[in-house]
Design a protein around this nucleic acid. Sequence first.
DNA 1: AGGTACTGTGGGAGCGCTCCCACAAGTGAT
DNA 2: ATCACTTGTGGGAGCGCTCCCACAGTACCT
Lengths: 351, 351
Amino acid sequence: MAGHGARGRSGGRPTLEEVAARAGVGRGTVSRVINGSPRVSEATRAAVEAAVAELGYVPNTAARALAANRTDAIALVVPEPETRFFAEPYFSDMLRGVGAALADTEMQLLLTFASSDRKRQRLAQYLAAHRVDGVLLVSVHADDPLPDMLAQLDIPAVISGPRSAEETLTSVDSDNYGGARQAVEHLLARGRRRIAHITGRLDVYGAQRRIDGYRDALREAGHEVDELLVEPGDFTEEGGRRAMAALLERRPDLDAVFAASDVTAAGARHALREAGRRIPGDVALVGYDDSAIARHMDPQLTSVRQPIEEMGRSMIDLLLAEIADRRPAVSRALERRHVVLPTELVERSSS
Amino acid sequence: MAGHGARGRSGGRPTLEEVAARAGVGRGTVSRVINGSPRVSEATRAAVEAAVAELGYVPNTAARALAANRTDAIALVVPEPETRFFAEPYFSDMLRGVGAALADTEMQLLLTFASSDRKRQRLAQYLAAHRVDGVLLVSVHADDPLPDMLAQLDIPAVISGPRSAEETLTSVDSDNYGGARQAVEHLLARGRRRIAHITGRLDVYGAQRRIDGYRDALREAGHEVDELLVEPGDFTEEGGRRAMAALLERRPDLDAVFAASDVTAAGARHALREAGRRIPGDVALVGYDDSAIARHMDPQLTSVRQPIEEMGRSMIDLLLAEIADRRPAVSRALERRHVVLPTELVERSSS
DNA sequence: AGGTACTGTGGGAGCGCTCCCACAAGTGAT
DNA sequence: ATCACTTGTGGGAGCGCTCCCACAGTACCT
């Protein structure tokens, strides 16, 4: 019956105004204290902080967002189907790094998938509505319009894998080229000579860089690159299986495989088993990502570790910096940054 | 030098007011159209919609949140360390279901970890700030204060695994009891008699229900329950390994193991291997979750499938319903709902 | 005719904050 | 004493929306 009055008059959460009254100061001063402005005397600050504590005041985010035109939220945009997002540990690790870096901040993380067209549509709306202060783009394909859209809307963004060598967005990446070289050099050092490569999706720049690393490592060791030993995959298990089967058909005498991802390697392993090849006896296998799969595989998989968690952290750092020092677009192009983090080969029993 | 005027005067995004002017109607009418109110004539609606399209109008979320006191966002709260969140496919699947259900909505998803005390603190702030309209709680332990906090703040919430049989929050769960029974009955049907159980964390209600199912299945089949065959685990691989070692020590003659999770089963597998037991020859193994691990294990793991994705969907449905029909707290206790979804045994070669 | 009800509409008030101008008070140079 | 800053502070205006009251118009009773 009661029915409670209209829109939570008093009795609801305390407002800035109430804190101000309690502390015996003006609204502006409380706002300054809340936002850590230096232009407040010690005594006043203490008084306000006491009032805040007593009242259990928490600023209203919506009001702040409206008045200040910022949201204190960033979005992690994944242009892949959710399925892949979770299937590949890459994303989880990334998310972990992002989460860790964000924990020191007031920023909230929005997780957004842009897989279907409808979702993309809605994403565009969110971005247009400036519902977030910045965007983290993960695993974007070369032809994706998303980055340009962000640029147009003038929303700070950081991309995890640059789309090309001329990436215009701030980017963070691991050393795909170097990682691939490490893998191939390792196989060469183990005495393997006919080393195949199952690539990642060819429209992913990182996959291209891994191919480059693979080729250069072979060449610099004085070997010719046999293009029949290179088979395109797509980072999936099924793709790895298919590619491996194709390779075995073409080059039955191959003695090693460098797969562009652990998941791909898992697929390759199946195909190798079916073909009766032993690992690493007949064929050595090296993956990429050093994910949980690598440790669970039988035999355990040698793999190239990317510091993905660190990449997540880096992305946040860069994004927050971009958000912090928004300035005329003109001068910004000059300070684009591209961070590349080193990889590491984790040797296990598959090679 | 330009400097652009003050706070994005005009030239920025169009506002409600501008749409109204363009359509030749009042602000209220535009608002009604935007929010799908039925009290608008067809002609007016069309005019407004045209204006919206022409101007590319997108409502300002912050303003709406401030005025209407809602956020159109919900939080998925995970009181586990991020590590576990990603290690266990349970969460990924859940998140997928949640994402899918949310895709039909205007709601945004916030992913929040409440692992450390500091994060909990911040989470409490968010909730207090009513930054979300509702909360999804995943895998909460029996003694967690979070649910009560939510109740106190009067924030709609749905919990994934009820904390006890008397759960007060709306909950969604899979049939842990039934799933465990399926597993044990399957092992019995396969002729196994000394069936061990590695439990989950004992402070998780679902783990208790699985133990109940295990016991009842044995009893109803006319077997006594040998408590030495029950060893507590904690859903982790390491826990599974330890538990398995303990079981082998106590009951070297056991011929089957029902593990409370696939990850646990993976640990058990290692311990069994080390002890020289063959799977399923010497010991049959059944897991729980039917995660990717189950398919990748060698031998492939028989496992109880929970419709986790569906659970995610259900949670969203229930939560949205709760958010939609907010009403005096008194009358609400009566309509709490507890959804339980069926499990399914997926037979593979480990049993 | 006058009442009563409903439909569609305009626009004031107000959500809780930030921004910024105004101004008091203090400090030092002239 | 005057001017010119600097420092700390109060409070008006306004962010873009929703809510709701007021009211014109129409329809259907008495």
